[in-house]
Each structure stands twice: as structure tokens, then as C-alpha cells.
Nucleic acid binder design. Structure first.
Lengths: 249, 249
DNA sequence: CGAAAACTTGACCCAACTCAACGAACGTGG
DNA sequence: CCACGTTCGTTGAGTTGGGTCAAGTTTTCG
């Protein structure tokens, strides 16, 4: 696959899953001018209030999370990002960051020139559809997270998070067998679910004792996926990963 | 203003606030084929699981909310919508609804033909920017709501909701003096903030007794906006309403 | 005017938080 | 390779914000 020659192969592949791209579209994406940049864990990739960024970042390797800080110092993680995923498509057309993005692990990002990305997006309808749909899917995940923190108890929230991450890791080919890497501390799991790290710890123990899932050493092993999905009311439709039906023309 | 001749004048005006549109862009929007449709309060405008909608709806008059149902029957409202706002831009490029949209008041919607909307969006860069940016702003509001239900206490959540609604009503010219209409029951306020109606009631009383805000008879009267904004940690930046700085070319 | 829906208030309960102490894992530098 | 500080995880005890249940009251609307 010629994608492998460019840094942006993973990004192009992800977009093509959302909407089919022809060879020219794909070549245009691969040719996007960009610079690589490396980040340590916890390093800020995007900062709230930053204005007029001239780039849009895509993860080449590693994991990242999107976060808002409260004045009391607490933190709410609003999304997680896997390799190949874009980190700030909102800056394509919005000029100010309303939140922070931090690396979860050592991370390599491609910072794509924003004007070049705008150009191909406004001139290539298929690319526009793919990139736009990607932002719409992200919004769908945000909606699900509102429901998760707003209306589920601790077990449900964590079960849901584990299921979502599993399905997304699967789709990215990063969860070979039942187990998968989850590079989050219990405090970060709490920040993603609106809980404290202490309560995350207790809840993980309960989930383990119930034979549903084991989370240890940055690794998740799901023992009973149907039960875990039921507990977290997890239905993967909102992730729009099924490329089952062909997109409407 | 010739916009008034079409149903879609309000929509066009809203889009133009996000990104400038020239006369041709505006005319193309006003000419979009659509049908009017009326809804009673609580009527479903969009249903979860619905496939292959051929339209995208815009509110001509009235209010609506976006909602997810949990299996125990509880409900999480994930957004509120004012006159002129689009209700399902996600269906522009996604083929299945992941949530429900209901009318909050008697509502008139314009159901715009989706293919026609796609066409002008993919052929008119300025329209694409405006519509796309509108979806990105919606996503920004979703992120703020995750933080609201995830990390604030009851007073903060409700204070934040009141401030957001006030600012959006102001921007839409619907909050002439300090007071504004809030067509939500206490149960719906609870569904939007992840609380029960009983606790919403008690919290509203506390906010009233503290001299911050009075909510009664579907009307909100904010007595101390700075204090209310402080309590809800409300900073309107995430709404991207300021058209202060010209958009980057 | 009457019924249904929305709001109000009290009593009680529990899920999740706080505070605190301790153990385990993990770098990192000597 | 080990010593040691630091971060992360674990567990207990006590507290509390918000939920539940239940009984009114008020508003709305046909």
C-alpha cells in the first residue's frame, strides 16, 4: 500500500473508512504539507485560548485526550484519541481553542498546514465529505459522553468507557485478542467519567469481582463483553464504524 | 431585507454571523427546496435509529431539544435549539440518527431537501465554511456540557445553563431586557443537567434566595449576572458568538 | 370548572466524595 | 545494580450532595 510512504497514510485510511476516496483524493491527502512533532506524556498539544493556529494536528503514533479545566483545579476529559485520528479539526474553521489537548503517552503528531487542508477540503468534494463526517462522528461521541456522565452510575460510566475504547481499538486493529492497552491512570479514568480516582478504584474492583473486566498495568482484559455492554448500555451505533451499508450517493 | 421573503431568512442570517456570505450564497440558501412542518410540544422531530432521512430541518419558530433515552426510562438532554438553528446537520453526511430531537414548544420547522443542501455546500465554499463552522460550534457546546454535568455541582450546572441560554437568546435578539423566556419544565432542566426535578426545584430556590436568578412561569429573570456566571464558571467563548475579529481568509 | 401537569416541601437514604494512611511500581541517577 | 523519590494504586472511616418516596399545592388548559 503506497499509503505507507507518507506520514499521513493512517489518516487517509481512517478518512476512507468514513467516505470512499479515489486515488487522486488520497494522493492529495498524502501530499499535504506538514511537520512532525513529538510530545512527552502530559505535554500540551493544544492550549485553551490559543488563537490563530495555522495547523491541524493528526496523531501518527500514541494516544491523546481532550480536556477542560475547572477553576477549582479539577478536570474533565471530553474525548480520547487514537493513532491516525485528527486532534483539532475544529481549528479548520474556528480561530480559537476552547479547550486543551494533552498527550496521554509519548506521541508523534503531524501538524498539517491549515490553509492547505482547507484548500483540498473546499476543492475536493469527497475529501470534504470524509473530513466533515469525521467531525460529525466526533460530535456524536460527545453527545454519548454527555449521557454517560449525566445519567449513568459509576459502574455504568466505566463499563461504557471500556466498551467504547475496546470497539475503537478493535476498529483500529489495536486490540488483537480480548485484551487491549489502556494508557490511562485511574485518575484520568475518573476525569473522563466525572468520578474521583478513589471511586474509580473501588468501582474497578467491583467490576473485576463481578467477573466483567480486569484493568491493571495499563491493560484491559474484558471477560464478559455482553454483560459489560449491558451494564454500560453500550450500543456502538453512535461510533458510526459500520461501513455495512454503502453511503448514499 | 429580502431575506424576509423566504422561510429560510433566519437560517441564512445565522449562517452569515458565522462566516460572511455574499449575495449569491445567500440567494442560494433562500432558494433551497423545503417544506414547512408543524410540531406540538413534545412531538418527535427526529427519532433515534431512523435511517436515510432525506431532509435536514431548521427551526422557523419555537424551541427544540436533543435527547438520549436510557433503558431505565431516564433521559439526558444534550442540547437546546432556538429559532433559526439547524436541527440535524449531522444527517447531511451521516445516515442514521443516534438520538432524538423533540419540540419544546409548538414549533414550525423547514425540512430542507438534503441533496440540495449537500449540493450548495459542496459547490459554494463560503456556504460550506459557514455550515461546517456551525457544526463545529455545536460540538464545542457539547464539550462544555460534558464538563458541566461531569464536574460541577447542582448550583453550578443550573447557573451555567441559565447563562448559556441567556447569551444565546441575547444573540438571537430574544432577550430584550434582563428577562427571557425559558420554555422548560423543571424536569427538563433536570434532564439537561443530569439532576432530578426535585433537586432542580430545591436548587432554584437556593439560587433565588441568594438573589442570583428567579425562574418562574417559564420565565427567567437574572438579578446578578456576574455572580451567576461566576457560580457556573460561565465564559461565553465556547459559543463563538463574538464576530469581533474578522475570520481568517 | 375540573382534571392533568407542574411545582413544592419534608423525611429518609445511599452513592460517591473527602481525608488519610499505606503499599506497589517505576524511573532515574549515583 | 541498587537506593530512593515520585507517582500510582489500594483501602478504611466518616461525611454529604443529591436521589427517592410521598404528600400536598399551584398552575395550566380543555
Amino acid at each position: 500500500m503506497s499509503d505507507a510512504r507518507s506520514d499521513l497514510g493512517g489518516f487517509a485510511r481512517k478518512l476512507a473508512l468514513v467516505h470512499p476516496l479515489d486515488a487522486e483524493d488520497r494522493a492529495a491527502i498524502l501530499a499535504l504539507p506538514h511537520v512532525r512533532r513529538m510530545f512527552e506524556p502530559a505535554a500540551y498539544i493544544i492550549r485553551e485560548g490559543e488563537r490563530l493556529r495555522r495547523t491541524c494536528s493528526v496523531i501518527l503514533s500514541g494516544y491523546a485526550f481532550r480536556q477542560k479545566l475547572m477553576i477549582d483545579g479539577s478536570r474533565q476529559i471530553v474525548s480520547l484519541h487514537l493513532p491516525g485520528e485528527p486532534l483539532d479539526l475544529q481549528h479548520l474553521f474556528l480561530d480559537c481553542a476552547d479547550h486543551n489537548v494533552q498527550a496521554l503517552t509519548p506521541l508523534v503528531a503531524a501538524e498539517i498546514d491549515r490553509d492547505a487542508l482547507r484548500m483540498i477540503v473546499l476543492s475536493r468534494p469527497a475529501v470534504a465529505r470524509a473530513v466533515w463526517a469525521a467531525t460529525l462522528i466526533e460530535a456524536s461521541i460527545f453527545r454519548e459522553w454527555i449521557a454517560n456522565v449525566g445519567r449513568r452510575d459509576a459502574r455504568g460510566r466505566i463499563a461504557h468507557l471500556m466498551c467504547e475504547f475496546k470497539v475503537r481499538m478493535d476498529a483500529a486493529g489495536l486490540a488483537p485478542d480480548g485484551r487491549y492497552e489502556l494508557p490511562m491512570t485511574q485518575e484520568q479514568i475518573g476525569d473522563a467519567t466525572g468520578l474521583t480516582s478513589v471511586h474509580v478504584n473501588r468501582t474497578l474492583r467491583r467490576l473485576r469481582e463481578a467477573g466483567l473486566v480486569t484493568v491493571a498495568n495499563r491493560e484491559v482484559r474484558i471477560h464478559d463483553l455482553p454483560a459489560l455492554a449491558a451494564l454500560g448500555e453500550f450500543d456502538p451505533d453512535y461510533l458510526f464504524l459500520d461501513n455495512g451499508d454503502p453511503p448514499t450517493p
